[in-house]
Structure formats: structure tokens, C-alpha cells
Amino acid sequence: MNKPFNNKAWFFVLPVFVLVAISAIIPLMTVVNYSVQDTFGNNVFYWAGTEWFKEVLHSSRFHDALGRNLLFSAIILAIEIPLGICIALTLPKKGFWVPVCLILMALPLLIPWNVVGTIWQVFGRADIGLLGNTLMRLGMDYNYATNVFDAWATIVVMDVWHWTSLVVLLCYAGLVSIPEAYYQAARIDGASKWKVFKYIQLPKIKRVLLIAVLLRFMDSFMIYTEPFVLTGGGPGNSTTFLSIDLVKTAIGQFDLGPAAAMSLIYFLIVLLLSWVFYTVMENYGAEKQDPRVEQD
């Protein structure tokens, strides 16, 4: 059957295109232009060719920051995705407690990034912070400003506190959309909770889980404000992620050329990893799925 096409619909896309052009495409073009030039300000530029790209690609500072970013994203995904699914599974599906739980879950998401950093900065202080002081009284030598492990642990726990709710809410939306008939059929078959999760819930929330993984990966890979406020990239450079290093290069040192080259490489890595995640999750299980049972 031929579908009717109405090309006038493209006009509705135009405002979004203009918005994206102003907010993303034009800045990206400018960054590409900056990446092959050097400047000392006043809109005066000198051609540098591929010099900045070579400099960044051979820089151990860039390699270290990239390694930290990859490690951080891996830790965040390994904790937040399973934890988010577990919490979503335990949330009530109907009744008085549903809105209460959802609002409680959504609260951390409403707090701005810099405020989250400040909250945890105070929270972790040994002299006045509840967490820092409690750990000190328990005999633990906790100090996120001087100890690398403590700094990393605080940033990871802070991110988990801030963003697991997003995974929970997305998974919950997927779970409540599963028709009751699936559960009835599973009960008739005597399926265990694990089997219900494996064969009904997990496949049905696959799509929203894909969005959750992508969002959390991209967000964690581009993390800036929280660690910047909490540790400022320290102790030493131990929590200097790519974004923090980028801002140091661009604004701190005013090396706009190298910063532009670095941000383009950073952008390409994000694009590649996002595509890999999306493709793997989009196609995972597609071959195993029987088209006769695909009803929704």
C-alpha cells in the first residue's frame, strides 16, 4: 500500500533546523575554523594547519584525561543502569505511593549541576559536612581534597545520587506500559520472578534502556560542572576530565586553536561511542525476535 506523503510537513521542521543551526551547527563550524588557526585575540588569525591536532594527539595530558573519562563512564554505567532497573522494579505500579515515589525520584534531577557540586562539597567536608564528619568519627581518614580514591568515590557517588533517578524513571515508564496479559500468561506458566524479568520485562524496556544508556553515557562522558565545583580537577590532575582540561586550555590558557582541535577529537569520540552503543543495543536480539509474536 502506498502511503500518502505530504511534503508541507517539512516546513514544521524548519524552526527546529534554525534553532539547531544557531545553537550547534554554526558553533561547530567556528570550532573547525579555529582548530586550524592560531589567534591572540581581536579576530586576528594565523594559519596553523594540522599543527594543533598533532599536538593534541601526542599529548600525554590528553591521553590521561581521555582515560579518566572512559573509566568514569564505565563505572557510572556499571552502577547506574543495574541500580536504576532494580529500583524501577521495586516501585509500586498503582495506588497512593506512585506519585510520592515518582516525585521523590525526580527531585535530584531538578537540582542544577553546580548546586549538586556545592552540596556534596559541603556534605563531604570533615569539619562541617555530615558525610565527612561521620566518616571521620568512624575512624576513616576521608578527604576528597587530598586523597585520589576519596575524590573519585565522592564524584561517582554524587553522580549516582544525581542521575540514577533518570534511569529509574525511564525504566519505570517502560515497565508500566507492559500489558497485564503478559504477566497473566507468565503466572499460568508458573514463571519465576527472574524468568518474568528476563523474558518479559527486560525485552519490553529495551528501547527505554537504550535511551537511558545513551543519555547516561553522553552525560557522564561530558561531565564538567560537578567535579569542577567539588575538586577543581584535583588532587593533582586525578579528576581532570576532558571537559575540565578543555576549559583550562581554552579559557585558562587562551589557547583557542589547541582547545578547538581537542574539542573536535572529543566530539568525534562521543559520536563514535554513541553510534556503537546505539547500533549494538538497537540490533541486539533483533535476529532472535520472532516477528509473529511482535504485536506492539
Binding site: I26, T30, V32, N33, Y34, V36, Q37, F45
Partner: peptide, 15 residues
């Protein structure tokens, strides 16, 4: 548009 720092090679790339 001088703030965009256009050069011939980058313009050619985007074209």
C-alpha cells in the same frame, strides 16, 4: 562574520 574565522580550506570542507 569575521568572528567565525573562515578560511578557504574549511569553507571548501563544509561546502
Amino acid at each position: 562574520l569575521s568572528w567565525m574565522a573562515w578560511t578557504k580550506p574549511t569553507a571548501l570542507f563544509f561546502l
